[in-house]
Simulated scan of single mutants.
Amino acid sequence: MGGPEVDRLIGLLSKLPGLGPRSARRAALKMLQQPEARMLPLAVALTEAARAVRPCADCGNIDSQDPCSICTDEQRDRSIICVVEGVGDLWALERARVHHGLYHVLGGTLSALSGIGPEDLTVPGLLNRIAEGDVAEVILALGSTVDGAATAHWLTDQLRPTGVVVTRVGQGVPMGGALDVLDDGTLAAALRTRRGV
C-alpha cells in the first residue's frame, strides 16, 4: 500500500488496545494526510512521555514525577489507601472523582492460569506503607472476577495482622467487570457502598 514505513506504523498502531488492523489503517491514513499537524506533534509527545514518565515508587501510578502528583498532594486523605489491580483502574477512579485518599497499584491479581503468584504483586510495599503511616482503612477496589475475588480474600488475610479496617467496593461493579471500563456513576456507587471484608 504505502511502503514498509506505513506498514510498520499500521502494525504498531494495531497493537494498541481498541485498535485492530482496520482502525490502525484509518488512524495511520489520517495522520499521514496531515503529518505536520497530526503525526509530528504525536511523535514529539510520545518521545517526551517515554523519557519523562515513570512508575511512582510509593504507589505504582505512572507520572512524570516520583513520588507522583497524587502521593504528593497534601489535600489527600492519607488515612485511606485504595488498592487497585492496575494503573488503568486508578485513573478510572480519579476520573470519577470519588476517592480522595491515596492508592496502591498491585500490578495484577492472583491467577494460577496466568502464573501470577503473591510474589508478583506489590504487597510488601503496601504493608510497608501501612507500617510507616497513619493508615486506618484499606479499600480493596479489585474487579469482580474470580481472580479479583481470590486476590481480595488473600489480601484480607495479609492485612488482618496490621489492624487496619479492610473494605471492598460495593454495589455497581458487576461480576466479571473490570474497573477501567465502568462509567463514573457506577464507580462512584461502588466506592460509596463499600463494606467490611
Score class of each variant (00 low, 15 high):
Gly115Trp: 02
Val105Glu: 03
His99Gly: 10
Gly108Met: 05
Glu132Leu: 09
Ala136Tyr: 02
Ser114Lys: 11
Leu159Met: 15
Arg160Lys: 11
Pro118Arg: 07
Ser64Phe: 12
His104Met: 01
Cys59Pro: 08
Gln158Tyr: 08
His153Leu: 04
Asp134Glu: 14
Thr72Arg: 06
Ala50Tyr: 04
Ala49Ile: 14
Val53Thr: 15
Thr72Leu: 04
Thr162Phe: 14
Leu126Lys: 04
Val53Ile: 14
Gln65Phe: 09
Asp120Gly: 01
Asp134His: 08
Ala50Leu: 08
Val146Gln: 13
Leu113Pro: 02
Leu46Gln: 06
Glu85Gly: 03
Arg168Leu: 02
Leu140Met: 06
Glu94Arg: 14
Pro118Asp: 05
Asp147Leu: 11
Ile130Met: 02
Thr156Gln: 11
Ser111Thr: 00
Arg129Trp: 03
Pro55Arg: 05
Leu127Met: 13
Ala136Asn: 07
Ser79Glu: 02
Val83Pro: 00
Gly88Lys: 11
Asp66Tyr: 06
Trp91Leu: 13
Asp66Ile: 04
Arg78His: 10
Glu137Lys: 02
Ser79His: 02
Leu90His: 05
Asp63Cys: 11
Gly88Tyr: 13
Leu140Ala: 08
Pro174Arg: 01
Val123Pro: 00
Val135Glu: 03
Asn128Val: 07
Ile130Cys: 03
Leu113Gln: 09
Cys71Val: 11
Arg51Thr: 10
Val84His: 01
Val84Phe: 00
Leu106Arg: 06
Gly172Tyr: 06
Trp154Gln: 07
Thr167Lys: 10
Trp154Ser: 11
Leu110Tyr: 00
Thr145Pro: 05
Gly133Phe: 09
Thr122Val: 10
Leu127Asn: 14
Leu140Glu: 13
Ala96Tyr: 13
Arg95Glu: 15
Val164Met: 04
Ala92Ile: 12
Ala152Val: 00
Asp63Gln: 12
Gln65Asn: 03
Pro55Glu: 04
Val169Gly: 11
Gly86Ile: 08
Pro55Met: 02
Ser64Arg: 15
Val165Pro: 09
Gln75Pro: 08
Gly133Asp: 06
Cys68His: 14
Asp89Gln: 07
Glu137Ala: 02
Gly117Thr: 00
Ala43Phe: 12
Ala136Asp: 07
Val173His: 15
Leu142Gly: 00
Pro41Trp: 09
Val138Ser: 05
Val83Glu: 00
Leu113Met: 08
Arg95Val: 12
Asp157Ser: 03
Thr145Met: 09
Ile70Cys: 15
Asp89Cys: 04
Ser69Glu: 07
Arg160Leu: 11
Glu94Trp: 12
Ile139Asp: 06
Cys59Val: 07
Leu90Trp: 05
Gly163Asn: 05
Leu159Ser: 14
Gly108Lys: 04
Cys82Thr: 10
Gly117Cys: 00
His100Glu: 02
Gly163Ala: 06
Glu74Leu: 10
Ser111Phe: 00
Gly148Ile: 03
Thr109Val: 15
Leu121Met: 12
Ser64Asp: 15
Thr156Trp: 07
Met175Asp: 11
Thr145Ser: 08
Cys56Met: 15
Ser79Thr: 01
Gln171Asn: 14
Glu74Lys: 13
Ser79Cys: 01
Ala50Asp: 03
Val169Asn: 10
Pro55Lys: 04
Ala92Thr: 13
Glu132Cys: 10
